[in-house]
């Protein structure tokens, strides 16, 4: 079985993201870029599945400009066998990404596709679900545990009400949550080995995917600051105030 893992290049989670004064975007001038942390967990899981003998090959894929090759190389250094860059001129919105991934899936025929549950830049949390819809295959989102039983996969999902378990037939799309695993460190010699692993570049046009129209971002703004509230003098006033606001 092949496993396909989606990787997105995003602003590193340690960066204090700031909106540009003119509201035209966020300031990413000189900021650190990384693999989306949830995608790193997705890759770690794929590698563990392969190491457990349940998969033959782990392929990482990213849709983006040539800069995303840096993150694909990191993924190869972590242990992926080969990488695919779907080369685009600018960032794709989730449905377009799903449409592009679907065309690659048709070529590669993976038994499992693993993605992060969301990207920490646009926080959309859509691509995995959309891919499953277009592919007409099962989806198991927000996964915190995967168990294989033959051609079936039992997935524990982190839902608001607790932990939900579902069973899906393969091939399927899984999106992963934070608690699934802790990604490995890259070993330094593996960075050198990764330079020799295959990285195929496929121009988006060559895939022949018909892309959905984009939603138009018209303005960026800094989040409103919280306003200073009221002072109360004692516990009785505090409890009364909370009751007045319907919070108790």
């Amino acid at each position: 079985m092949k496993i396909l893992v989606g990787i997105k290049r995003v602003v590193d989670y340690n960066v204090r993201v700031r909106v540009l004064p003119d509201g035209s975007g966020v300031d990413i001038d000189g900021v650190k870029m990384s693999i989306n942390p949830f995608d790193e967990i997705a890759l770690e899981e794929a590698l563990r599945i392969k190491e457990a003998g349940k998969a033959a090959e782990v392929i990482v894929i990213s849709c983006g400009t040539d800069e995303c090759q840096q993150q694909l190389r990191t993924a190869l250094a972590m242990g992926a066998d080969r990488a695919i860059q779907v080369k685009t001129g600018s960032a794709l919105q989730p449905l377009s990404t799903a449409q592009a991934l679907l065309r690659v899936i048709e070529r590669e025929q993976p038994g499992l596709v693993i993605l992060g549950k969301q990207a920490i830049d646009d926080d959309n949390s859509q691509t995995g679900q959309m891919l499953a819809a277009l592919w007409n295959r099962p989806q198991a989102t927000f996964a915190s545990k995967l168990v294989f039983e033959g051609e079936k996969l039992t997935v524990t999902r982190e839902v608001d009400a607790g932990l939900e378990t579902i069973e899906v037939d393969l091939p399927a799309v899984v999106t992963v949550d934070l608690r699934l695993n802790e990604p490995r460190f890259v070993k330094l010699p593996d960075i050198m080995k990764a330079k020799r692993k295959p990285l195929d570049v496929i121009p988006l046009e060559e895939l022949g995917a018909s892309l959905a129209s984009n939603l138009d971002i018209t303005r960026y703004a800094a989040p409103p600051l919280r306003q200073k509230g009221i002072r109360v003098e004692n516990a009785a006033q505090l409890v009364q105030e909370l009751k007045n606001r319907g919070l108790l």
């Binding site: 802790e182 990604p183 490995r184 460190f185 070993k187 330094l188 010699p189």
Partner: peptide, 23 residues
Amino acid sequence: VIGDMGIDRAGVPKDTFTQGIEI
């Protein structure tokens, strides 16, 4: 010698322990 990674506060290797290499 590159520092080991994935060691907990008490100095015990974790699941992610990665031995540093020598250059």
